[in-house]
Amino acid sequence: MRLLLTNDDGINARGIYYLAKELQKYHEIIIVAPDNERSACGHSITLTRPLIVRGTKLKGLKSKAFSVDGTPADCVKVAINKLIDGKIDMVISGINKGLNLGADILYSGTVSAAIEASIYKIPSMAISMEIEKGIENYDMASIYVGQLLRKAKENNIKNDMVLNVNIPLIKENEIKGFKVCKIGSTWYNNSYIETDRKNNETQYEIKGALKDIYEEDSDTIYFREGYITVTPLHYDLTNFKILKDVSQWF
């Protein structure tokens, strides 16, 4: 397969390096990623200035690579429209340094890059890995991505499908398998801490801890039970459950 890899942690992030290193064994890889970290930038794109694209060489990787001084969605758009000739079979965004469970997908640059691909009718995956106390295991995560990629190919993944994948940081023999499930509910007890004040300006830094809300058959629950969660997403945010109800207003 011919794969476009991107992320929101930046082109020099370990996650995208290990992912490319594993997938280049079996597939043609092109990397187009932000020049610096763009975490939690959502689906923003750059409109007020030109984008700067630089060809680069990543040590140990044989694939073409480009850095973009923009967002993950920018990277996918410029890759498809300008940098890559011919068909792209799939876009894989990640491996993200940290999880994208529940409502986090609304803020995630990792997920937004994958969704951007589906707008162009290219199937995609957003891959996120649990990180705890600086411990990372992208080697193991990359192997599971390869397995999921084979399953997607065997089952003819649809061209507008996005798979949001979260991999727990536990021993390989403790992972119970893949669990396809819905997005769960999450909530942060956010607070804004004043860090500086001068003249008429005040600086605030956001702090907060994640609070899971129990919801059956959701990614937040199955993830804590030791599963790799897989959630199909689509960019159509229409709430079809209440579409008829709202139409009756008029």
Rank of each mutant, 00 (worst) to 15 (best):
I16E: 01
I242S: 11
A209Y: 08
Q147K: 15
L101G: 02
C181I: 00
G86C: 08
S142H: 03
E22L: 01
N36P: 01
D245T: 14
R38N: 11
N96T: 00
I92Q: 08
F66Y: 15
M129G: 03
V230G: 11
S63Y: 01
I157T: 07
T238A: 09
L23V: 00
M140Q: 08
N173A: 03
A65T: 06
G55E: 15
L169P: 10
R150D: 12
A40G: 02
D212V: 00
T48W: 13
K182P: 04
L101R: 04
L3E: 01
A33M: 07
Y227M: 00
K121W: 07
T186G: 09
K153I: 14
K176S: 01
P50G: 04
E205D: 07
Q203L: 12
E136G: 02
G70W: 09
I84D: 03
A113T: 10
R2A: 01
L237D: 09
N199P: 02
L5V: 03
K179Q: 01
L163K: 08
E216F: 04
I213K: 14
Y192R: 15
D89R: 03
L83F: 11
A114T: 10
W249Q: 12
G109Q: 05
E22Q: 12
F178P: 07
F223H: 12
V230W: 05
I119L: 11
N137W: 00
T229C: 05
Y26G: 01
S128C: 15
S247M: 15
S112M: 13
F240K: 15
I52A: 14
Y192G: 08
R14N: 11
I228S: 09
T56Q: 09
S93M: 06
Y107E: 14
D139K: 14
A65W: 02
P72R: 11
E22S: 03
F223Y: 07
N137F: 06
T229Y: 02
N12P: 07
S112R: 10
G15Q: 07
A113P: 10
N239T: 09
N159K: 14
S247G: 02
E215L: 15
A113L: 11
G208D: 03
Y138D: 01
W187D: 13
V162K: 09
V162S: 07
T231G: 10
K198G: 04
